[in-house]
Amino acid sequence: MTGQGSMNFIFGKEGALVIDVDMIQRQIDLTFAEINYLIRLMYATEDEHTKNLTLNQMWNKIAHLQFLNQLLVAASFPQEQVAIPIPNSPQTTLPDSTNTPVDNNQREFTREQLAQFTGMNGQPAYVAVNGVVYDVTNNAAWSVATHFGLSAGRDLTQEFASCHTGQQWILDTLVPVGRLIA
């Protein structure tokens, strides 16, 4: 049902991303037309199920617009590295958590120290996987610093391996804050 993924990327020399602005403009016009059509369909249908499907399609179209918009921004500032967020990624972190200073990655934690970072009472929520300590304080999947019965402040290497085999990308979306020692 999702409408993403049909974007035209053109890779130039050295693999640099070259963005066809005209193509994006046409896509945006088309998406707007589709959204307009969906709005009218919502008025026309009396069936709740169809209405619900239409509403979902509209969400997808709007996510698509957002994506196109990001591309346009990227095209306007080609010299900057603009991260293009993937809409609807299940593990979205807050934008401001990416501003963590890089040298924090070198901070060392013992298990006892890690256990302080429970995400409660003013402490951030940290978890360790494969020796790396990550900040999950504002990670959507860690509401009230718990995740499927697991709590923060622990080494969750085994739990990660048993539930997220082959999903290394999850770790790539997390913010590393240091290393677990011993």
């Binding site: 409660m120 003013g122 402490q123 304080t137 009230v144 610093a145 499927f148 019965g149």
Partner: peptide, 17 residues
């Protein structure tokens, strides 16, 4: 995994930053 793996349902002492 509901309810055990979805607990706690409501908590007030989470770090809010």
């Amino acid at each position: 995994g509901f309810p055990d793996r979805m607990a706690p349902f409501i908590s007030y002492d989470t770090t809010k930053e």
